[in-house]
Amino acid sequence: MRLTAVAALVAALVISAGALAQEKYPSRPITLSHGFGAGGNSDTVARIIGPVLAERLSQQVVVEPRVGAGGNLATDRVAKAAPDGYNLIVLTGGHAVSGALYKALPFHPVDDLQMLSTLIYFPFVISVRKDHRFQSLADLVAEARAKPKTITYSSVGVGSTQHLAGELLASLAGIELVHVPYRGGQAPVTDLLGGRIDVMIDTLTVTRPQLNAGTIRGLAVTSPAAWPSLPGIPAAADTVKGYDVRSWMGIATTKGVPEPIVKQLNADILYALQQPQVRDKLEAIGNEVRGSTPDEMRSWVAGEIAKWRKVIDDAKVERQ
């Protein structure tokens, strides 16, 4: 009787395990994390793509900001999550910068994540308050040379792409600027308008509403040539030769997620990017929409880390 009972228990466990293994994904809500403040670029992009992913997956997709450490707190959480596909993260160009800037991270920026697809590519805008004394990037450079370490600029955290964009500008122009890190969101805009910082280096998502409202003035765009959706704002490279900073976003999940789920998520992200309600909104805030395969995203992130390592070395930025 005991043997029969044990056999029945084993059979029940096997059946239960089989049922779980065959459980349709997803069977519960999915968390789409990012590492920056509400209202910032990551938050905006996540909330544009999230509803279409939710509809496609027939499950709720909860956008969850986890602010801190230049986005690395959110990435660390996803890197250490269960490999079941229920924890996704919007990675930014700052992820590659962190991989190059920090001596040690609590996760490997490539090997501890399963890349799914890139989403967008974009430049940054170097801007000032509308009534600021700087009328051009050349004005900024001239004053910074005459008065080193007196001009402040914002970023969304130490190790963010905005931070390195400022460091690269200073290095190539032969000037010294004062870096003021924030946690993303609208805080840099608030302090720029309030006169507490001189210069903001930020995404089009954050900058464009203020440009349209006439409250700030764009001195330059960080792409090597003028950006199509920002007519009238010159490229920084017109003033500082060789300057080129463009960033990106993509979605990743935890390493070890089963391949069928990886393929499904990749297909669903690519589908979402093709929908007018997603593509039009992303392009309207100045982005180039471009999806990828998981392998293409992995190669891209690894290449970006290598690029920023060289920038950091050339600019003599101290590693954190």
Rank of each mutant, 00 (worst) to 15 (best):
F122Q: 05
L57Q: 09
G70D: 02
A79Q: 05
V45K: 03
H34P: 01
P123I: 12
I48A: 11
L91D: 00
L101F: 15
H95E: 00
G39P: 01
G93M: 04
A46Q: 00
F124G: 05
T92R: 03
G50M: 06
V52N: 05
D43Q: 04
H108E: 09
F122E: 00
R77Q: 14
S42K: 02
I120E: 01
A81R: 02
E64A: 14
A74Y: 09
P83Q: 08
H34T: 07
D112L: 03
V45S: 08
L88A: 11
S117W: 07
K103S: 15
V52F: 08
R56Y: 10
V63A: 12
F107L: 01
V78N: 04
D111K: 14
T118D: 00
L119C: 10
V78T: 09
T92C: 01
N87M: 06
V45Y: 05
H95T: 11
L57V: 10
L88I: 04
G39D: 02
P51M: 12
A38N: 04
L113W: 02
T118Y: 02
S127H: 11
Y102V: 01
A81L: 03
H95N: 07
V62Q: 13
A100F: 09
Y102R: 14
R129V: 11
L57T: 11
V45H: 06
P106E: 06
F124E: 01
D112C: 07
R56D: 09
K80F: 04
G93C: 08
A69E: 12
V125Q: 04
D112T: 05
G99I: 01
L88G: 11
G94F: 10
